[in-house]
């Protein structure tokens, strides 16, 4: 962003510079960092910031995607295209043990599917690649327990987060020291809001998965929510039928666990206008959050991102 005309930074410029600072600290202080690339809008911003932070060099760490095998097909295409286009290393990790056991969001339920294919898979990947810092796109405004998490969030050798024993974090002086087997999850977007993310995407012209824009797509209505029929693994229950509706997504995850919203917002400006006037928070479309009260804090303590 061009600030030549100004003598101080505006909100988005401050957020950008602070995030770049965090990414550079990670690169300088850790031996084997990875950038957790989950293909959503926050990841797209994170990746863009990483390209900026190390310019004219490439980011000095690979991308890691934990693939639950249930992501939208368009997400996977977008992921492979972006990594190729930017010339970055992409590690894709699937929990093969979970695949063998036939774990799926339909037969196993949202909680078990997420535990095995996401949380377990993530721990496997981090241990396998001896990752000492995993950079993620989580924001503090997403959810209450995230609001208290550090930018550099320490995990013990079992990947466990202890919310009552967090390291004090002052100024932008990040403690990056870990012992053998221990690691840190770094969250450069901690201070961004959903609105900041969208405004930045527009200001910087950052590509995002087309699923964020409204289009005619095949859906079924299930439990009051719209689920997209992304492939033939979605089995219809009695009384259900697939119909075509103009929908889009506010967040992206596993297609059976991510509810769509009816919308006419087919381009970026329309999406921003809709987001800002929305009376519902974005995580409402995430089915796993509603399993139990304080569910995110519990998942995070167990090692979920």
């Amino acid at each position: 962003m061009n600030v030549a005309a100004m003598n101080s930074l505006n909100n988005l410029q401050r957020l950008e510079s602070d995030s770049i600072h965090i990414l550079r600290e990670v690169a300088a202080c850790f031996e084997r960092p990875v950038l957790m690339y989950s293909i959503g809008k926050d990841s797209s911003v994170l990746l863009h910031l990483a390209m900026k932070a190390f310019h004219p060099a490439k980011p000095p760490f690979p991308l890691l995607h934990v693939d639950t095998t249930w992501k939208f097909r368009e997400m996977i295409e977008f992921r492979d295209h972006r990594a190729r286009e930017l010339g970055l290393d992409l590690i894709v990790h699937i929990n093969e043990d979970g695949v063998k056991r036939g774990v799926s969001p339909f037969t196993s339920g949202a909680t078990i599917h997420t535990d095995v294919m996401k949380t377990e898979a993530l721990k496997q990947a981090l241990s396998l690649h001896k990752v000492d810092c995993a950079i993620g796109g989580a924001r503090r405004d997403e959810e209450k327990s995230r609001a208290k998490e550090r930018v550099m969030s320490f995990r013990d050798a079992n990947h466990v987060w202890n919310p009552r024993q967090q390291r004090p974090e002052l100024w932008d002086l990040y403690n990056c020291r870990v012992g053998p087997g221990e690691s840190v999850r770094a969250f450069p977007l901690s201070n961004w809001t959903e609105a900041d993310v969208w405004h930045y995407i527009r200001a910087e012209n950052i590509p995002v998965v087309p699923l964020y824009y409204a289009a005619e797509r095949p859906v079924v209505e299930r439990g009051g929510q719209l689920i997209m029929a992304d492939d033939d693994r979605l089995e219809l229950q009695p009384g259900e039928e697939i119909r075509t509706e103009k929908i889009r997504f506010r967040t992206l995850g596993c297609y059976p666990l991510t509810a769509a919203v009816r919308s006419d917002a087919a381009d970026l400006d329309a999406v921003i206008a809709e987001t800002l006037s929305s009376r519902r928070s974005e995580r409402e479309g995430r089915i796993i959050d509603f399993d139990q009260s304080a569910s995110m804090e519990k998942k995070k303590r167990e090692g979920y991102f």
Binding site: M1, V3, A4, S8, Q13, S17, H21, K52
Partner: peptide, 17 residues
């Protein structure tokens, strides 16, 4: 130097090379 091109001035807070 920045990703967006070279600058004539870098202001306080700004991340640059």
């Amino acid at each position: 130097e920045t990703y967006d091109g070279n600058l004539d001035v870098a202001v306080p807070g700004q991340a640059v090379t």
